[in-house]
């Protein structure tokens, strides 16, 4: 990832989750119900409709795993956050254009007149 968001900054999951995964990760993965699969489907459902099997996998895992339950909602909220910032014209870079560029724009508008 190029993002300057190193995941080593992120805390590990709680011990209870890790203990549970020692037992359950392999069979869950075999059934297509791993946490990774759930996270993938949580985001994928925003890109295309899920198949019936994928929908079952998503909801079944969300029902069983408290750690993952909020992940689909997190993706929804993140999307809404970006949309709101974009619609307000706030998402771009902070640095405004060079004053000379702004002046050129203004001059062009005056040139057209009105």
């Amino acid at each position: 990832m190029s993002c300057t968001c190193p995941t080593h900054d992120l805390p590990p999951p709680p011990p209870g989750y890790r203990r549970n995964q020692k037992l359950m990760a392999a069979p869950m993965r075999w059934m297509g119900l791993s946490c990774r699969r759930h996270a993938t489907l949580s985001a994928l459902r925003l890109a295309r409709p899920l198949t019936a099997l994928e929908t079952v996998q998503l909801h079944l895992h969300g029902w069983m795993c408290g750690m993952c339950r909020r992940v689909p909602d997190q993706f929804d909220r993140i999307a809404r956050l970006f949309q709101a910032a974009d619609e307000a014209g706030l998402l771009g870079e902070v640095a405004p254009p060079d004053p000379a560029v702004r002046e050129a724009w203004r001059a062009r508008l005056r040139e057209i007149g009105g």
Binding site: T7, Y17, S34, C35
Partner: peptide
């Protein structure tokens, strides 16, 4: 990015709910 967030068994390596 999922390769950095999950281990080989498909379990979270990080707490998915922290910081959000």
């Amino acid at each position: 990015p999922l390769d950095l967030l999950f281990d080989a068994r498909g379990s979270w390596k990080v707490d998915p709910n922290a910081g959000l």
